[in-house]
Design a protein around this nucleic acid. Structure first.
Lengths: 335, 335
DNA sequence: CTGAAAGCGCTAACAG
DNA sequence: CTGTTAGCGCTTTCAG
């Protein structure tokens, strides 16, 4: 392939007739330099089209200016938009991002964790969903999670899931629904949106109807699963709060297939409110997560850890373990 | 932060009572090792929780096993899914991916290009859309583009855009449309989907109606632009071929607002057929790009360049400069 | 103001 | 079979 080497510091030094030290100095604007030296080095860099080797720089400096982001998959608009927001927030601090799609598989997440550590990233933001990855316990590295409780000592940033679940359910009730069902990914005590749904139902006399279809069910299967779930409670609900917008879309498709009119006979509210799904389905009423704020805060907490100006994981005290942001209701024609 | 260093090769060597060479050897399974040595090293690695420093490894080996992917933004499902497909294809070869969102801005793309080169990635796959970035000319590095003609010497992988444009338009005609309009991002000779549209119209007596709204128009504005465009040709069209699904969704929203029934009075066909949008809008008829094949082929061509078993950019001959894959029509209720 | 030299952690000759 | 010894490209004392 006869590719000539990229030029190195030494090449620049030689061409400029100075030492590598001097070149390094002008590159990093450190110490006093004669104008003459600066000029000659600048010219040599220009002539050679020199670009510092960040790999070498990182090896020495013990800082890669890279952080890892672990999420299920950027193929889902929610995580795609989250990734872009994180990237933007990071850019201000001079960091870049290594995006890792765990695809909801624990082995893949573990693999990526090792990759990130091996590559000596300066910190990790984890928004993946695999339970019980003990690896995180032993990670001695700046770490922040998004919408995921790993451990009380690891800062977590998220929207006010419980309040949001309550809000979504209340919107359905206000619109006239009497028996709203919940369609979520996994039911349980850890599911705060479900808690909010139950909160809102308490005192209305309505019985909670919780349907669970894993969010990473392969696509052709998912629609069927959702339809089975809805059919199984047929006649016992007149509204659905789906904990993500794509699931809400599946509910709409079910209704169309069954000839159930929305919103007169069925009201639907989704969750996330991503720009992409909003464009695809502007009719869908939903709860919007403030992704920009969440990303910005997660980055802020992470950078504080990296700079040592914030608590590291394992540290008690200091930053509260969870930061929550309020959500916004986006009206639509589905309720 | 009082974090003691991550353990190094030397630490492992000391603990195992062997030399660093030996440790390096067992790590890379190179040369002959006594079983005893292997065992002791393995134990030491285990005890210390040692993870090889990939940065150092890359510095020496002149290979980072990382490739850069430049795209507009993973916030759009099409590029999000493309990124995941590329990542999967790459994983088989032991490569990882650095995803760069250019956000459609030339400055950002240039910046990322420098970043990738500075980080000494082994190659670049570019699927961004900025015109006239002269930087690419001077890049002496394995490079493949996706759906983008940079130069005849740089391999390009894409779907059969022209055939696909023709197919989409023909589907509209077959469904009974007489005057299909085209809604695209940028009109011009380079727009092969537009060519296909014109091909299909030739001989039908229908006059081409081409509407252009840039795909990266900020979201709230876009819907308005699309509506203005459609209003401007009101009464002169009875179908729309939109060159991406999100644009098609905007057409549907326009129709709903104007009280135009789909598909009886207006037929619509989109483009891309991503899983996410398919889930959100299963009713939309569209043309599906074989993202998996495209990604796999792009990676194959890139890896061939990296391994030196394929032509480098600038090389004439060898691999044809463009590889095209056929698309598939996905039926829906919008036509 | 500038340069020589010692590493950062790892790999690869080149001897034993 | 194993250890010694150079570097990879860059930053950073420490002396001029």
């Amino acid at each position: 392939m006869a590719r000539s080497h990229e030029p190195t510091l030494a090449d620049v030094a030689e061409r400029a007739g100075v030492s590598v030290t001097t070149v390094s100095r002008v590159l990093n604007a450190r110490g006093y330099l004669s104008q003459d030296a600066k000029d000659r080095v600048a010219r040599a860099i220009e002539d050679l089209g020199y670009r510092p080797n960040q790999v070498a720089r990182a090896l020495h400096g013990k800082k890669t200016n890279t952080i890892g982001l672990i999420i299920p998959t950027v193929a889902l608009p929610f995580f795609g938009e989250l990734a872009v927001e994180v990237e933007n927030a990071l850019a201000d601090g001079g960091y870049r991002i290594l995006i890792c799609n765990s695809l909801g598989r624990a082995d893949r997440e573990r693999e990526y964790l090792n990759l990130l550590i091996g590559n000596r990233v300066d910190g990790i933001i984890s928004g993946a969903h695999n339970e019980g990855l003990c690896e995180y316990e032993s990670i001695r590295m700046p770490l922040v999670t998004i919408d995921r409780d790993l451990s009380p000592t690891i800062p977590n940033v998220r929207c006010d899931n419980r309040g949001a679940g309550r809000m979504a359910t209340e919107k359905l009730l206000e619109a006239g629904a009497r028996r709203p069902a919940l369609l979520t990914s996994r039911s349980g005590a850890h599911n705060l949106r479900e808690q909010g749904y139950r909160d809102a139902l308490a005192g209305t006399g309505a019985e909670p109807l919780v349907l669970a279809v894993p969010f990473d069910t392969p696509s052709p299967l998912r629609q069927r699963r959702v339809e089975e779930a809805l059919d199984s409670i047929a006649g016992r609900f007149d509204a659905v709060f789906a904990t993500d917008d794509l699931a809400a879309a599946e509910v709409l498709e079910w209704a169309r297939g069954r000839g159930v009119d929305v919103p007169s006979r069925l009201k639907v509210v989704g969750f996330d409110g991503t720009t992409a799904i909003r464009r695809a389905l502007p009719a869908l009423a939903t709860i919007r997560q403030p992704l920009d704020l969440i990303a910005r805060k997660a980055v802020e907490l992470l950078v504080a850890q990296i700079d040592g100006s914030g608590p590291s994981p394992g540290d008690a005290g200091g930053v509260p373990s969870a930061v929550e942001f309020p959500v916004a209701f986006l009206p639509g024609r589905t309720l």
